[in-house]
Computed example of a mutant assay.
Amino acid sequence: MNIETFDAGGIDMVRFDVQPHQRSDAKTIVCEAPVHDIRSVRSSSGQASKRIFILTEVHWLDTTWQVELTLANRNKMGFRMLMGREAIRGRMLVDPGQSYFGGRPKKKKRKHW
């Protein structure tokens, strides 16, 4: 994920790449957003780093709301985006024993040669 900040007429902006399909880098979308904040974030391994935060809308199960997102390269991680507690607080309950509450994604048909 390329992440670069720039100035647009006195507004701090960030330009970043998004690869919307899990486990595939075939498609890349270049996005731009105003920088909402820069904060220190501690990873699951305990390492702290400064990260850029943006505000964006999330659309999930016919509901849309605004969340703060941190920008980080997650290409080598199991999931490209994580929804944190603050993003879903007061909107959803998590059942750790269930998967695909919104429906299992459709699998692409494999081509057999």
Rank of each mutant, 00 (worst) to 15 (best):
residue 19 Q to P: 00
residue 80 R to T: 08
residue 58 V to R: 04
residue 53 F to D: 01
residue 13 M to Y: 00
residue 94 V to C: 03
residue 81 M to A: 09
residue 68 E to V: 11
residue 63 T to A: 10
residue 74 R to G: 08
residue 25 D to Y: 09
residue 11 I to W: 04
residue 102 G to Q: 03
residue 66 Q to H: 12
residue 43 S to L: 10
residue 34 P to Y: 04
residue 4 E to G: 06
residue 104 R to N: 03
residue 13 M to P: 01
residue 109 K to I: 15
residue 23 R to W: 15
residue 14 V to A: 06
residue 47 Q to A: 12
residue 40 S to K: 13
residue 68 E to S: 08
residue 21 H to M: 12
residue 37 D to F: 01
residue 9 G to F: 10
residue 104 R to M: 11
residue 5 T to G: 07
residue 78 G to T: 13
residue 94 V to D: 01
residue 10 G to D: 10
residue 101 F to I: 10
residue 54 I to F: 01
residue 37 D to Y: 05
residue 71 L to H: 02
residue 57 E to D: 13
residue 63 T to I: 06
residue 66 Q to L: 15
residue 15 R to E: 11
residue 25 D to W: 07
residue 5 T to P: 07
residue 107 K to P: 02
residue 70 T to K: 00
residue 13 M to K: 02
residue 33 A to I: 11
residue 41 V to I: 15
residue 85 R to L: 00
residue 26 A to G: 11
residue 26 A to H: 09
residue 22 Q to I: 14
residue 35 V to M: 04
residue 24 S to I: 08
residue 43 S to R: 06
residue 38 I to V: 15
residue 106 K to F: 12
residue 96 P to Y: 02
residue 92 M to V: 14
residue 74 R to K: 08
residue 48 A to N: 08
residue 14 V to W: 04
residue 87 A to F: 05
residue 90 G to S: 14
residue 110 R to H: 10
residue 42 R to M: 13
residue 5 T to N: 08
residue 84 G to Y: 01
residue 14 V to D: 01
residue 3 I to C: 03
residue 82 L to S: 02
residue 106 K to P: 09
residue 32 E to Q: 12
residue 105 P to Y: 01
residue 71 L to N: 06
residue 57 E to V: 06
residue 95 D to W: 06
residue 32 E to Y: 00
residue 20 P to N: 11
residue 71 L to D: 03
residue 36 H to E: 12
residue 93 L to C: 09
residue 9 G to W: 03
residue 97 G to E: 04
